[in-house]
Design a protein around this nucleic acid. Structure first.
Lengths: 362, 362
DNA sequence: ACTGATACGGAAACCGTATCCCATGCCCCT
DNA sequence: AGGGGCATGGGATACGGTTTCCGTATCAGT
């Protein structure tokens, strides 16, 4: 009999369908469901029964249009299969879920264009925050692009969070959650030096990657502190992957480079290095010691188990979400001045079995 | 001067702001932006200038309320840090991006309640499809719960996709993308048997997990085919993690179990098993051979590199998305009958260095 | 029994966008 | 020159909720 939408339930039940069938007003249904208004027990029962019968769920789009809606956080990641990033994502996701927030994940594939497109997409979605994960390339343009993102998101009522990247310069409305990258590298290199190693092959990562720069710098500082001259000829740059670790060591051996330890920029690089040493007939750690960075599960699954630097990835994710949640719920008034927050979490060396004092060789 | 919203741009620019400032109607702005309607070059210029000035982006919620909007696919995953799942997610995500779709990720943590909550959340979001990842526990309730999800999503115009799980029984509106799990296990076990192994420690996984069941079944079939009696006493069930692999082997050795090879249900389990063997002074593969399953990057990063079964995770993700995209774009009319699609992708053994014919020991 | 407070239901005004329908202006054809 | 057709732009409405504003029914107090 009803005029609109021939009674068959094509598509999805609306709040009106529920109201009609329960014989109450639309407003009443809304109130029962959101529960932010007193409602009689009788009404609640009537409505809830129909809701169950129709398997009704509210339309999130309509709800957020009308002002309500669940806050959403977007995680932008270079490569979802990277173990370290996955842990940050897990931290963000679990903290978000805890508060009833929703989380989106997008992958950029290291492509600035895609990054831009995704940030805009997230702006359209009206996300509460955009979390950018992973080390960044230190090109001139980077600071400008990020600053633009930050302002653009801020203007739209959202917020930019940088995780595992250096903070932005100037007065930019962005939060940074970082770890003591350089300090970890310093401690790791010190560990090798104090074990007696002096000739160390260093594989910090891409020269332009901010994390690689920090790790190299920390290592240099350790050498200085120990009064050991740092030989730039012992540094090999390259991507953070297994192949680079393998090839760098293979090449170093072919060139007859003399080293008793490998300081890898990443656990995965360390794994590749380890494999290359084995292929050359060298034992780890008897002939050559190896250390990594990140402390992903792989580190403890290698043989021997890898001594490495623990980075609290999951906690960084949780901290990042907490930061944006606080900012959104806490301070209604003051906005300026408290922007540009920078949180730094600690790192520490995890000693396992891949380091020994230098032996017969070298 | 304007009455509404004191002209300062608090919050976010709307299409009305753009229209007003460009001196045109709201409809014109919408048309310029969506570009599905002829518009004069003059108008386009005027509008686009204001859009850039205001850094305007359309409100995705409003857009999808009004009928348009980007299709979204939701990926529900047990644990985002699992390497295998991450690859499926990558496949889904990349295929989604390719078509301009958006993708959401939610983690269930193996909790049926959370799974239910997430499916409902996704229903609210009006997602085009929900992709459920990973092996399922074969409890009686499982089939019913999934069937309910499937119908519920279907009624809301969405669609359920099961990836890496067995298909649902009966006429349920769900798509399944699966791999030849049992076949892979059969081939893997055959590989060991043809190398001469007869006493094999089997670590298939949790007894109730569907993937573990399939892998165990495949192994048994291989033993039968080779005319080798299968000893149930050589099977150890447990979770798919490193610790289980380690402890199961450790225990087996303590019990004096006699075996020349380990058939692990997962590469990670194999890694644990390998470590336990080493700890007991046994060499791999000289004393004991090991094989895994999944072919995640870890497999080729272990020493020795692991012989394992390749599962096309990323492709499964792509196939899953393609299936829902086709269904949504392709057939407008027919819906019934073509439901319950079941796609199976092949697996194959990847031979590396962790298997040798049984040697002196045993 | 009457008044005032209180609790709850209903109508209507948005939220921001897409689109349907119509009005207008211009060009072209006869 | 007048009328038909096409190319454009504008106004109104729908999408599915939430929320404000009011009106009424209910209850307690005296």
């Amino acid at each position: 009999m009803s005029q609109r939408k021939a009674s068959g339930d094509a598509g999805r039940a609306t709040i009106r369908d529920v109201a009609e069938r329960a014989g109450v007003s639309v407003a009443s249904v809304s109130r029962v469901l959101s529960g932010n208004y007193p409602v009689s027990e009788d009404l609640r029962r009537k409505v809830m029964k129909v809701v169950r019968d129709l398997d009704y769920v509210t339309n999130a789009h309509a709800r957020s249009l009308a002002g309500g809606g669940t806050p959403t956080v977007a995680i932008l990641i270079n490569n979802i299969t990277g173990a370290a990033f996955a842990h940050v994502a897990k931290g963000v996701e679990s903290a978000a879920t805890l508060r009833g927030w929703l989380s989106l994940v997008g992958t950029t594939g290291d492509d600035p264009e895609r990054e831009l497109a995704l940030v805009n997409l997230m702006r359209q979605q009206g996300v509460a925050a955009v979390v950018l994960l992973g080390g960044a390339y230190d090109y001139d343009e980077y600071q400008l692009r990020m600053a633009r993102f930050a302002r653009s998101l801020d203007a739209a009522g959202s917020h930019l969070v940088l995780v595992g990247r250096p903070p932005l310069e100037g007065d930019v409305p962005a939060t940074t959650v970082d770890y003591d990258n350089e300090g970890g590298a310093y401690a790791m290199a010190s560990h090798l030096l104090s074990a007696g190693h002096r000739k160390v092959l260093v594989l910090p990562g891409h020269a332009e990657l901010t994390t690689a720069q920090g790790r190299l710098k920390g290592a240099r500082r350790a050498f200085e502190a120990y009064g050991v001259p740092f030989d730039p000829g012992m540094v090999r740059h390259g991507p953070y992957d297994y192949e680079h670790g393998y090839e760098a060591v293979e090449e170093a051996l072919e060139q007859g480079l003399d080293f008793t330890a490998v300081l890898a920029g990443t656990d995965v690089v360390a794994a590749g290095a380890m494999q290359a040493l084995r292929a050359a007939g060298l034992r780890v750690p008897e002939d050559v010691s190896i250390v990594g960075y990140d402390d992903i599960p792989l580190a403890s699954q290698l043989t021997p188990q890898l001594t490495t630097v623990h980075v609290p990835y999951e906690e960084m994710g949780r901290v990042a979400l907490r930061a944006v949640a606080d900012r959104r719920e806490g301070n209604g008034g003051r906005r300026k001045g408290s922007d540009g927050e920078h949180l730094v979490l600690g790192t520490h060396v995890v000693v396992r079995n891949s380091v020994q004092p230098p032996g017969r060789r070298g």
